[in-house]
Design a protein around this nucleic acid. Structure first.
Length: 690
DNA sequence: CACGCTACTATTTTT
DNA sequence: TAGTAGCGTG
C-alpha cells in the first residue's frame, strides 16, 4: 500500500529485499553495520549480537554495490565462517555466495595454491597438521644428534610449540626460552640447529606447516610488491571476526591486505581472548586504533542472550580482570534464576548431579540440543561420557582427541601421503615401521637409499631389503604399485584407494591393537569421508585444514539422533550458546589449570576462559565441583579440592548454592546395616588394582 | 637387528 | 591412560 502512495520514497530506500536495518538492529549495531569506509573496531561483549552485526554489515556492503567476490571475511574457526556465510545468504540471497569467507589458514592455503609458484613454492605442496609437524621435528631432533643430550633436551612437542611461537610472535627464540622454558636456555644454539634442520627438511620434502601458511602469506604481502598488489588487490573490504584471538603475524597479514585502502572491520571482545598459548595477543585489539589511524570504535553492550542473574555473575567474574575495554553488559531479559553452584562429594557425584539435572530440564521441555556441558580439558568429561552412554543419553563431543590424531587413521593416511608426495619422509618412516621385519634401522636405510636415488619412482622398489624384511618389502611395493595404477580422479577414487590399503593394513591393525573394532569403524568412516572428494590431493588438503569432528568410542551410530547433548571444551564453546550450560570441574588446579598458576597472565587467560564458558548460557547455568578427587598423580589417595579461585566471595554471592545428595546405593547400604565385606574391592584387589 | 615386555611419565586449549 | 623409552631375548 504505502509503496503505491509513496513510490519515490520506496525507490530511495533501495531494493525490496533490503533488510530493514533500523528495525532489526539496535542503534550501536546499526551504526556498525552501516559504517562507510575506513577502519572500524566493534567491541562486542558476549551475547551482544556480534555475528548478527557482522552479517548485516556484509549485507549492507552488498547493498551499497560492493561486489561479493571483493569482500573477504576472515574468521577464526570453520564453524564461524560457515555460520556467518549462511546467515548472510539467508538475509540477502544467493548473490552473497561469492563472498570469500574462511579461516586465516584456509584463506592462506587458497592464496598459496594460486600465487605460491611466483614465490618459489611448488604448487603441489602437502600441508602438515600439527602432529605431522611434530613428527618432522622429531626427525630433525634425532638426525641432528640433539636428541641424545640426555633427558633434558626438549621433546618434539615442546620444540614445535616453541618454533610455532617464534614464527607467530616474532619473538627471538632466546627470549621465548627465558620466558617460557628457562630449563632449556642452555640449549638455545642446539635448538636453533634443530629448527634449521626442520626448515630444511620441510623444504626438501615439499611440506608446508600451519605456520608457513600464514608466514608465506604475510611475506608475500610485505616483500613482493607486485604479488602483494595481486593478492591484496582482489579485495575492497576485509572483515575479521574474533579479533582478540589474532596474533602478530595475522595482524601483519591484515595490514598487508589493507595497504591500498583502509576498509577493515574487526570485531572482538578483549574479555574473551583465550588463545595466547598460540601466540594470540590481546594487544592486537587494544592497539587497533593506533595501528589503523582514524578508527571508528563502536561498543556493543546490550546482551540478548542471558537472563540478568547470569549476567550479574559473569559481570562480577570478569570485573576482576586487569586491562580491558570496560563494558558493563546489561539485558532487558527479565526474570530467570541465579546460576547454581553445586558442591559434589566426588567425581561420580558430580556426574550424577549433571546427568540428573539434564534429565530434569529435559522433562521441563528443554531439548538436549539446547544444553551443553563445558570443561577445561578434553579428558575431564570421561566419567560423564560413560554415564551418559549407560543412560542412553545421546551426546556429541567437541574438542578433545580428534579423529585424525588416532594413530590408526594416521597410518592409513601415511600411505595416501606417500603416493601424493613421494618425498614425504615422515609418512615413509611411519609406513615402514608398520611392516613386520622392518625396524628403525631398515627404515632409515630404505629412506637413505631413496634419497640417494633422488626419490626416483622406482627408488623404493630398488631398495635392497635385508632378508627378514623381504616379504614386507615385496608386499609394500606391490601395494604402492597397485595404488599408483589406480585412477587418480573421479567419484569415489580415494575411498577405493583406502580400501586397497586396508587389504594390507587391517591385518597390521589387528596385530598392533587390542581393541580392534572401534578402530576398524574409524577406518570405515575415513573411507566414507574420502568418498566425497574428487582426488587424493583435495582430500589430504581438506583433512589438514578441515578435520572432521568424528568421535570413535561411545558414539551413537545407527539411527541418527537429532536431539543431542553437547559436550565441549571451553575453548571450542566460543561463539556458541545454549539454553542450559553446565561448567564442571571448577576446581583450582583444573580450572584454572595448575600449570598456569605460576604466571599471572596465564591465570588471567584462564579467568577469561571461565568467563567465555559461563557466558554461553541463556537461561540456566550450573557450575559444579567435586570436593574429593581420586588422583593418581598426587598419590593413591583422595585429596581435598578447593573451589576455583575465580568463584570468589563476590561471585558466589550472586549464585545459588546446591549440595549434591549422597548416592543412593550408600543410602541403601545404611538401611541394611554396615558393610561386612566389600566384594568389589576384593575383586579389584586380585589385580593389584587401586 | 627386530620386537615384545616393562617401567615410566607427562597430561590444555586449536588452525 | 596411553604413548614411549629402555632393556633383554631370539
Amino acid at each position: 500500500m504505502s509503496a503505491e502512495l509513496f513510490p519515490e520514497r520506496d525507490r530511495t530506500v533501495g531494493a525490496r529485499r533490503t533488510p530493514s536495518y533500523v528495525e532489526e538492529l539496535n542503534s550501536a549495531q546499526h551504526r556498525a553495520a552501516t559504517h562507510g569506509e575506513g577502519p572500524l573496531l566493534i567491541v562486542a561483549g558476549a551475547g551482544t549480537g556480534k555475528t548478527r552485526t557482522l552479517v548485516y554489515r556484509v549485507a549492507h556492503l552488498l547493498d551499497q554495490g560492493v561486489a561479493a567476490e571483493r569482500i573477504l571475511l576472515l574468521t577464526f574457526t570453520r564453524r564461524a565462517a560457515q555460520e556467518m556465510l549462511s546467515r548472510v545468504e539467508r538475509l540477502v540471497g544467493s548473490r552473497s555466495r561469492a563472498v570469500h569467507g574462511g579461516t586465516f589458514h584456509a584463506t592462506a592455503h587458497r592464496i598459496l595454491r594460486r600465487h605460491g609458484e611466483q614465490a618459489g613454492l611448488a604448487s603441489d605442496f602437502t600441508i602438515m597438521d600439527q602432529g605431522d609437524a611434530e613428527d618432522l621435528m622429531q626427525l630433525a631432533r634425532a638426525r641432528t644428534g640433539m636428541g641424545e643430550k640426555g633427558k633434558r633436551f626438549p621433546k618434539k612437542e615442546t620444540l614445535h610449540a616453541l618454533y610455532s611461537r617464534h614464527i607467530n610472535t616474532d619473538e627471538p627464540v632466546g627470549a621465548l626460552l627465558r620466558a617460557e622454558y628457562p630449563q632449556f636456555v642452555e640449549y638455545e644454539a642446539d635448538i636453533v640447529t634443530v629448527f634449521a634442520d626442520y626448515v630444511q627438511r620441510k623444504q626438501e620434502r615439499n611440506l608446508v606447516d600451519y605456520d608457513d601458511l600464514l608466514l608465506f602469506w604475510a611475506t608475500m604481502l610485505e616483500a613482493a610488491p607486485a604479488l602483494a598488489e595481486r593478492i591484496a588487490g582482489a579485495y575492497d573490504h576485509v572483515l575479521v571476526d574474533e579479533y582478540q584471538d589474532t596474533n602478530l603475524l595475522q595482524a601483519r597479514i591484515l595490514r598487508g591486505m589493507c595497504r591500498t585502502h583502509q576498509n577493515i572491520t574487526v570485531v572482538g571482545d578483549d574479555a574473551q581472548s583465550i588463545y595466547a598459548f598460540r601466540g594470540a595477543t590481546v594487544r592486537n585489539i587494544l592497539d587497533f586504533p593506533q595501528q589503523f589511524p582514524g578508527t571508528t570504535i563502536v561498543a556493543l553492550e546490550e546482551n540478548y542472550r542471558s537472563v540478568q542473574p547470569i549476567l550479574d555473575t559473569t559481570n562480577t567474574l570478569i570485573s576482576r580482570a586487569e586491562e580491558r575495554y570496560t563494558k558493563q553488559l546489561y539485558t532487558k531479559r527479565e526474570g530467570g534464576d541465579r546460576p547454581w553452584l553445586a558442591t559434589a562429594q566426588d567425581e561420580p557425584a558430580q556426574t550424577r548431579f549433571v546427568v540428573e539435572r539434564i534429565l530434569e530440564l529435559h522433562e521441563e521441555g528443554i531439548p538436549l540440543a539446547e544444553m551443553a556441558v563445558l570443561f577445561r580439558a578434553g579428558y575431564q568429561s570421561a566419567d560423564l561420557e560413560i554415564e551418559l552412554a549407560a543412560r542412553n543419553i545421546p551426546f556429541e563431543k567437541w574438542g578433545g582427541i580428534k579423529f585424525l590424531e588416532a594413530s590408526h587413521v594416521k597410518d592409513v593416511l601415511a600411505f595416501l601421503r606417500v603416493l601424493e608426495n613421494p618425498r614425504d619422509e615422515v609418512s615413509w618412516y611411519r609406513i615402514l615401521l608398520l611392516m613386520p621385519g622392518i625396524g628403525e634401522l631398515t627404515a632409515r636405510a630404505a629412506i637413505d637409499s631413496m634419497v640417494r636415488a633422488a626419490w626416483h619412482h622406482q627408488a623404493f622398489a630398488e631398495f635392497a631389503a635385508p632378508s627378514r624384511a623381504r616379504d614386507a618389502h615385496r608386499s609394500l611395493v606391490q601395494l604402492l604399485h597397485a595404488l599408483r595404477d589406480a585412477p587418480a580422479e573421479g567419484e569415489g577414487v580415494v575411498g577405493t584407494q583406502i580400501l586397497t590399503i586396508r587389504q594390507l593394513y587391517d591385518d597390521i591393525l589387528r596385530r598392533k591393537y587390542d581393541r580392534v573394532d572401534p578402530r576398524l569403524a574409524d577406518l570405515d568412516q575415513l573411507q566414507t569421508i574420502a568418498g566425497g572428494y574428487p582426488s587424493r590431493a583435495a582430500f589430504l588438503s581438506a583433512l589438514a585444514l578441515e578435520p572432521p569432528q568424528g568421535t570413535q568410542d561411545l558414539g551413537f551410530d545407527g539411527e541418527t539422533e537429532d536431539d543431542i547433548l553437547t559436550l565441549s571444551t571451553a575453548h571450542s564453546s566460543k561463539g556458541r550458546e545454549w539454553d542450559a550450560v553446565f561448567v564442571i570441574w571448577a576446581v583450582d588446579g583444573y580450572f584454572p589449570m595448575s600449570r598456569s598458576l605460576g604466571d599471572p597472565l596465564q591465570v588471567e587467560e584462564e579467568r577469561r576462559l571461565m568467563y567465555v564458558a559461563m557466558t554461553r548460557a541463556r537461561n540456566h547455568l550450573a557450575v559444579s565441583y567435586p570436593l574429593n578427587v581420586y588422583d593418581t598423580r598426587r598419590g593413591a589417595d583422595y585429596s581435598l579440592d578447593q573451589l576455583s579461585r575465580f568463584l570468589d566471595r563476590g561471585v558466589r554471592d550472586t549464585m545459588h548454592r546446591v549440595v549434591v545428595e549422597p548416592p543412593h546405593d550408600e543410602v541403601s547400604a545404611e538401611r541394611n546395616g554396615p558393610m561386612e565385606i566389600d566384594l568389589r574391592a576384593i575383586l579389584k584387589g586380585r589385580f593389584g588394582g587401586s
